[in-house]
Design a protein around this nucleic acid. Structure first.
Lengths: 214, 214
DNA sequence: TTTACAATGGGACAAATGTCCCGGTTTTAT
DNA sequence: ATAAAACCGGGACATTTGTCCCATTGTAAA
C-alpha cells in the first residue's frame, strides 16, 4: 500500500550526480506541504527520494479519496506531462519529503533516449493500472470490514502510523464508519483470518487491532 | 465510458497490410465469448478492430466489477505482457468482435523500435490510469443516484444498449439497487441536471430514464 | 499555565444498499 | 402448443454506512 521503486530512484540518482545541471535538482517539503495541487499547471516531473506522501483527490462534495501512499522512487507528475493536463490530484507530504525535480525537457529526453528508463516507465504505469483497478474492484465489492482488515494487514508490513482520517479516506468511508468497524472487529472474539484471505494468524490479527485501541 | 483509440488502430492496420506474416492476424468472437479469461496465461496482445467488449473482474464472492467497455483500437493484454503475469481480468465480447492478435515478439519489437507506437502506448496507459483513478474516486464518494445519472448520460452518447446487469456491475451495485435508483429518479418530478454536473437538460434526462421503463 | 483548536470515540437516528423472495413475463426445449 | 426454465421488477426486511452531535483527549500557540 506504500509504493516504492528503487530501480527508478537509481537511474535518477545516477543522472543527477553525472550532470549537475538545472535539469534535475532537489526540493524538500515539510509534512503537510503539497507537492502537487489538484487543478494547477505543472512544470516538472518529480521522483521521491525520501519520505512518504499521499496522493489523493478532493471531490466537489468535500470528500477525499486517497489513491496511494507514495514512497522512495515513485514518479509524480508523469500523467500530467504525458497528457498535457493540469494536476489530476494532490500530493501531500506526510513525513519530511525530499524529491528530485526533473524539467519537462529532460524527462522527455529520458523517455526517448534512455531505453531502460522507457521500459521502467512502462512498468510503473502498468503496475499502477494493475493496482488501481484491482483495488477499485475489491474495495467496492467487499464490505468495509473485509477492506479494513486487508488495510491493517498491509499497514503492518510498514512501520509508519497513519492518521485515521487518512486510513478512512483510503477506504473511502467516513471516519465514523471506520471507527465502528474497528470496534466491531475488536469485539469479535472468534475471528478467522482465513475467511478474509489474509496472510496472518489470529494472534497477529489481534495485535493489529489493538494497535488502534484506546 | 466506451473507450476507443483510432490512432492505435491505424498503426496496427498499416503493419498488418504491409507484412502478411504470422505476427499479426485476425480473430473473430461471438457475443458472450471470452477473449481473455482471468487467471490464464496469455500469448498475444490484442487490438480491437470492431465491436464492443467488456473488461471485468470476478471477485471470490461471485461479484463482478466492470472496469471499462472497450471499442475499436483498444489494446488488450499489454498489462500481462509487460508484467509477465497471468490475466488480471476477463474480456468478453458484447457484440460480434474482430480483433488483431499480435505475437509477444512482435509487440515487443513495436515498443522498442517504433517510436510513435511507443508514444501512443504511453498515452494509452496514462489515459487508463487517469480514468480508472477518477472513476474509483467519484464512484465511491458519491451516492448511487449521482453515479447512475452520470452513467446514463455517458451511455446516451453511444447507441448501444447494455444489459442492466452490466450497468449495475459497472456501478458496483446490486441489480436491485440499480432498479430502485432508476425508479426513484423517474418518480422525481423535479430533477435539476445541473445539480449533478451533467451536460444535458431536463428533457434529455427524462428521455434517458424512460428508455429503461417497462 | 491557560486557551484554542484539532483529533478522537461513540450514541442516536436517518439514509442507502443488500438479501431474500414471490409473482409475472419471456424464452427455450420438447 | 405446452411445460420448464430463465429473466425481471419490486416488496419486505436486515444490514451497512452516513450524518449530526457532544464529550474527551491531545497538542500547539499565547
Amino acid at each position: 500500500m506504500i509504493r516504492n521503486n528503487l530501480a527508478i530512484l537509481n537511474i535518477i540518482e545516477q543522472y543527477q550526480t553525472n550532470k549537475k545541471g538545472a535539469d534535475v535538482f532537489l526540493k524538500t517539503l515539510e509534512p503537510g506541504e503539497k507537492l502537487l495541487q489538484q487543478g494547477t499547471t505543472l512544470h516538472y516531473v518529480y521522483v521521491i527520494r525520501e519520505g512518504i506522501s499521499k496522493c489523493y483527490l478532493t471531490e466537489n462534495n468535500g470528500k477525499d479519496f486517497i489513491f496511494e501512499f507514495l514512497g522512495a522512487g515513485e514518479i509524480v507528475g508523469e500523467i500530467e506531462f504525458i497528457k498535457h493536463t493540469r494536476c489530476l490530484c494532490n500530493i501531500e507530504a506526510l513525513t519530511s519529503l525530499t524529491v528530485y525535480c526533473i524539467t519537462y525537457d529532460y524527462f522527455s529526453q529520458l523517455i526517448r533516449i534512455n531505453q531502460p528508463f522507457n521500459t521502467l516507465l512502462l512498468d510503473v504505469l502498468v503496475t499502477r493500472i494493475y493496482h488501481t483497478s484491482e483495488r477499485a474492484s475489491y474495495q467496492q465489492r467487499y464490505p468495509a470490514e473485509y477492506n479494513t482488515l486487508k488495510l491493517l494487514s498491509l499497514l503492518a508490513a510498514h512501520q509508519i502510523v497513519l492518521s485515521k482520517k487518512d486510513l478512512a479516506d483510503y477506504l473511502a468511508v467516513s471516519i465514523r464508519s471506520f471507527n465502528r468497524t474497528l470496534k466491531d472487529l475488536r469485539n469479535k472474539s472468534i475471528l478467522h483470518p482465513e475467511d478474509f484471505n489474509l496472510y496472518m494468524d489470529k494472534v497477529e490479527l489481534n495485535k493489529l487491532l489493538h494497535q488502534y485501541e484506546d
